[in-house]
């Protein structure tokens, strides 16, 4: 991981406190499901993966590679068939507000206002009303939605809904934010802008971010590491270290040779994966 500050002392300190702490440990995890004909199939096979605290990790792969299954295992919605998923050394037993999720298609409650949607994430904590309102307002500002606290999701654009989703995920102060293709439904301009804001939020909060995506550029631009997966069975094909220094500016998407190289590397890997999948 690259430090924000150029100072070598700060760098060492950051490396110490971020890199040395293991957040997740996925050990020998397989997950089998039954399909409609009651035939078991393997969504994930023998996954080993360590995720460091404060890391921005992306998982990319063709559909059916089990990346969403992996995210659901970490979230605690499902349990592995074999192997264990540990969070800070403890086996994950179920979902919890220490691992919040930004859901596909936002999954905001249409009957709640922006403020109430964000406050929903605080429901597990016993907060005084004043304190809760302050927290909600803080996150409304953080995602740039001031003045929209009383609006309903249906009154917002896709990008604004995604901002609410980000704020809801961050409000309970989780250790980890899990993101299931959060930007898939957005137009490319909004997507780029939100990626940049997400990056800024990540570098301010220093939380562990785990992103599932289809978008190679998004994965490379945001992440410290990109996990490339292959399907049938779902396995990790390759782990790409993204050694692009931070802070990363939007220009690197078109100018930075390292960025472009990494992007092509991931694309090539995915191309191989897709071709292999098509042969099946």
């Amino acid at each position: 991981m690259k430090a924000l500050s150029p100072s070598p002392v700060d760098n060492a300190w950051l490396v110490h406190c971020c890199m040395s702490r293991l957040m997740f440990s996925v050990r020998g995890v397989s997950k089998h499901f039954e399909n409609r004909d009651r035939k078991p199939f393997s969504a994930l096979q023998e996954i080993d993966l360590d995720i460091q605290a404060g890391e921005f990790l992306s998982i990319i792969g063709p559909s059916g590679c089990g990346k969403t299954t992996l995210l659901n295992l970490v979230a605690g919605f499902i349990k592995p068939t074999t192997g264990v998923v540990l969070k800070e050394g403890v086996e994950i037993s179920g979902p919890g507000p220490d691992r919040t999720m930004m859901f596909q298609d936002y999954a905001l409650f249409p009957w709640l206002t922006v403020a109430d949607n964000i406050a929903f994430g605080l429901g597990a904590q016993k907060l005084r009303r004043k304190e809760r309102d302050a927290r909600v307002n803080h996150f409304i500002s953080l995602v740039g939605l001031d003045g929209f606290d009383k609006a309903y999701p249906a009154q917002l654009s896709g990008g604004m809904r995604q901002r609410v989703s980000i704020a809801r995920a961050l409000a309970p102060d989780p250790d980890v934010v899990l993101m299931d293709e959060p930007f898939a439904a957005l137009d490319s301009l909004t997507r780029d802008r939100l990626q940049e804001e997400l990056l800024a939020i990540w570098s301010r909060t220093r939380k562990t971010f785990l992103l599932i995506t289809h978008n190679v550029e998004e994965a490379v631009f945001l992440s410290d590491r990109v996990i490339v997966m292959e399907s049938r069975p779902g396995r990790i094909r390759s782990v790409i270290d993204v050694a692009i220094p931070r802070p990363r500016f939007p220009e690197i998407r078109v100018r930075d040779p390292l960025f472009l190289n990494l992007k092509h590397e991931v694309l090539d890997l995915l191309g191989g994966v897709t071709r292999a999948a098509e042969r099946h």
């Binding site: 979230a75 919605f77 179920g94 979902p95 919890g96 507000p97 691992r99 919040t100 999720m101 859901f103 298609d105 999954a107 409650f109 929903f120 994430g121 429901g123 597990a124 809801r168 309970p172």
Partner: peptide, 10 residues
């Protein structure tokens, strides 16, 4: 998905 949101946020 609403049930999952509720479970996720405890």
């Amino acid at each position: 998905v609403y049930v999952r949101v509720a479970r996720c946020f405890g």
